Amino acid sequence: MDAVPSLKELRQMAELKALETSSLIRAGVDSEEILSRSVASFKDTYQPLLVDKVFTALFQTYSQWFIAAVRNLLEPGSAIYEEPVSVASIGDGQVIRRMNRLNLSEDLLNEYKTAIGCLAQECGSQMVQAGAAGKDAREVLVNFNLAATKLEFDFGLTEQESLDTFDLFSGQVAKEVDRRLSSDD
Rank of each mutant, 00 (worst) to 15 (best):
L108K: 13
V128R: 03
E111H: 01
G124Y: 10
D154K: 05
S38H: 01
Q94M: 13
G124F: 09
L168F: 14
D167T: 04
L49C: 07
G124T: 01
T21E: 09
Q126D: 10
E82R: 12
A18K: 03
D184Y: 15
V85E: 13
S86E: 14
L73R: 14
M1H: 15
G117H: 03
S36Q: 13
V140C: 03
R180I: 06
R101M: 12
T149M: 13
L146G: 14
M1G: 13
F153C: 10
K175C: 10
L119V: 01
A18S: 05
E111W: 00
D178H: 11
E20I: 10
A57E: 11
F144G: 01
L104M: 07
G117W: 02
S78Q: 02
A174S: 11
I80V: 12
L146K: 11
L35K: 15
L168N: 00
P76I: 02
M1T: 07
E82V: 09
C123T: 02
A133M: 11
E159R: 09
F42V: 00
D30Y: 09
E83H: 07
L151V: 08
D52S: 13
P48C: 02
R98L: 11
I116S: 02
S41I: 00
P5K: 06
D107S: 05
T165G: 03
K17I: 05
M127H: 03
D164C: 07
V177T: 04
Q12V: 06
F166T: 08
T56Y: 01
T149D: 14
R26A: 10
S63C: 07
A115Q: 01
S183M: 13
A40M: 12
A79Y: 03
I25Y: 04
Q172I: 06
L24C: 02
V51M: 14
Q172V: 00
L19S: 08
T158Y: 07
L7I: 07
S38A: 14
L24I: 00
S89M: 02
A27V: 00
L163N: 04
Q64K: 09
D44W: 08
G28K: 03
L181E: 10
Q64A: 14
F55M: 05
F155S: 00
Q60T: 04
Q121S: 13
A27Y: 06
K175V: 11
T114M: 15
P84Y: 00
K135Y: 13
E82C: 11
E122V: 07
L181P: 04
T21F: 00
N110H: 09
V51D: 15
Q172C: 04
R11Y: 09
A132S: 15
T114R: 15
A88K: 14
Y81S: 01
M1C: 04
D164Y: 05
F144P: 06
V54H: 09
R138G: 03
E33T: 12
P48V: 12
M1D: 01
